[in-house]
Computed example of a mutant assay.
Amino acid sequence: MSTTSEADEIYSAVTETAGRLGIAFSRDKVRPILSAYGDAFAHAMPLAFRMATGPRHAGDVDCRFITHPKDRNPYPLAVSKGLTPRTSHPVGALLPDIEERFPVDGFGIDFGVVSGFTKVYAGFAPKDLQKVSELVGTPAMPDSLAHNFDFFVRNGLDDKVAFVAVDYLHRTVNVYFNDVPAACFEADGIRRMLRDIGLPEPSERMLGIGSRAFGLYITLNWDSPAIERFCFGVTTTDLSSLPVPVEPQLEKFAESVPYGGADRKFVYGVAAAAEGEYYKLETHYKWNPGTVAFI
């Protein structure tokens, strides 16, 4: 399939999904992103859509994909094409700093069908997970990563970093952990970790999701020493098999995304934040077994 037809196919999926959900998406934001990264779509996997509950996420749907080739940082192109503004804030320097110091194995992109270009992921090979103790030395990294270093060590997470995601719209950073110790997903472990970082007591719903979680991530910013959000998720090909019911809003979203494969893959996540918990569902438009999952 040609590059143009691949981008047209994704645009058609965006249009169909937004229409079914009653979202007036921004063609002027979606089309330039698909055009800029058109050569990625012949190889991009997975391609996924995500929706989240809560007022911050209302009225938008995210689209995410892994870029190709893996050694091409997608951020400079986003700046040169005007998809995200050039900035002197450390958020603009973090990804080049990471690429210079660590063996990045691939990149991913998030964009909102309404909000536009949002986030870039830098991923590491599954057999070469990176260390928080080394990431804290990255010049543009928020000081909050170093401030919470003892938390990561206590919970066996120091050498488990699988991805770092830079959110240019909100000026935040996500640090993803894989091969997480089982104790982190036990009810007592979840309660203890949230208490240690000053977040509210988890709901029974959050504890239920944790019992089957595959990984976790935290959100940091440059304005606070605190961990802003704590999130984990579960994967499934059948939403009815999850340990908790899915919100009607997210069920409708899952039904609205077109898919041409046999078994659809979902990632259902929960995030703990100071203002309370919220939930998110990623549904794959295209995916291959063994490809990475984000939350």
Score class of each variant (00 low, 15 high):
residue 189 G to W: 08
residue 30 V to R: 03
residue 55 P to R: 06
residue 104 V to R: 00
residue 154 R to T: 08
residue 150 D to C: 01
residue 194 L to W: 02
residue 222 W to D: 06
residue 39 D to V: 08
residue 122 A to Q: 11
residue 54 G to D: 13
residue 119 K to N: 11
residue 245 P to K: 03
residue 260 G to Y: 08
residue 71 D to A: 02
residue 105 D to T: 02
residue 277 E to N: 12
residue 142 P to I: 03
residue 89 H to S: 05
residue 183 A to N: 10
residue 195 R to T: 12
residue 202 P to V: 10
residue 47 L to H: 03
residue 208 G to D: 12
residue 260 G to D: 13
residue 278 Y to K: 08
residue 27 R to W: 06
residue 50 R to S: 10
residue 180 V to C: 06
residue 116 G to K: 07
residue 218 I to T: 15
residue 110 D to P: 01
residue 22 G to Q: 10
residue 15 T to D: 15
residue 219 T to N: 14
residue 125 A to F: 00
residue 236 T to P: 14
residue 166 V to E: 01
residue 263 D to F: 12
residue 210 G to Q: 02
residue 132 V to I: 15
residue 127 K to W: 03
residue 252 K to C: 04
residue 127 K to D: 15
residue 21 L to N: 09
residue 146 A to W: 15
residue 18 A to R: 01
residue 46 P to F: 08
residue 107 F to K: 01
residue 18 A to V: 02
residue 291 T to P: 04
residue 57 H to A: 11
residue 257 V to W: 09
residue 251 E to L: 12
residue 278 Y to N: 10
residue 233 G to F: 15
residue 236 T to G: 06
residue 293 A to T: 15
residue 270 V to A: 15
residue 238 D to E: 15
residue 84 T to I: 15
residue 87 T to V: 10
residue 39 D to T: 13
residue 185 F to N: 07
residue 169 L to Y: 02
residue 40 A to M: 01
residue 258 P to E: 12
residue 54 G to Y: 14
residue 231 C to W: 07
residue 152 F to L: 07
residue 153 V to D: 09
residue 232 F to W: 14
residue 4 T to E: 13
residue 230 F to A: 04
residue 109 I to E: 00
residue 233 G to M: 11
residue 277 E to G: 09
residue 40 A to L: 01
residue 279 Y to M: 09
residue 26 S to L: 06
residue 156 G to I: 11
residue 54 G to A: 09
residue 152 F to W: 14
residue 53 T to A: 06
residue 21 L to M: 13
residue 17 T to M: 08
residue 179 D to E: 14
residue 288 N to S: 13
residue 161 V to E: 10
residue 137 G to Y: 15
